[in-house]
């Protein structure tokens, strides 16, 4: 039974993802950290599904599909901002302030 270690690992992964989103300034790296958070959640679901039934595994499939859709839209948006500003660094993307 690996439930406790799996949950701990996913909690650590999730925290790393959150820290990455808050600390990094490159849009693509931030997006990768968000993906890390989602995959941490997937690990939690799979670990729990061992004991709690198939709903958790089903959820993982939906999360992966949604993450793929989000990646498609997100990368397109990052591309659009690069065309305008020639950077994906959030420190330089600051037209909207005040």
């Amino acid at each position: 039974m690996l439930l406790a270690p799996a949950l701990s690992v996913s909690a650590v992964l999730f925290t790393l993802g959150v820290a990455g989103v808050l600390l990094r300034r490159n849009a693509i790296v931030i997006f990768m950290c968000v993906e890390l958070m989602l995959n941490a959640v997937n690990l939690t679901f799979v670990a729990l599904a061992q004991q709690l039934g198939v709903a958790g595994q089903l959820f993982v499939l939906f999360v992966m599909a949604v993450a793929a859709a989000e990646a498609a839209v997100g990368l397109a948006i990052i591309l659009a901002i690069y065309r305008h500003r020639h950077t994906v660094n959030l420190q330089n993307i600051n037209l909207l302030k005040g």
Binding site: F31, G74, I78, H84, R85, L95, L96
Partner: peptide
């Protein structure tokens, strides 16, 4: 600005 809004909203 719209591209920036989309990026911030997305992230």
């Amino acid at each position: 600005p719209a591209a920036e809004a989309a990026l911030k909203y997305f992230l």
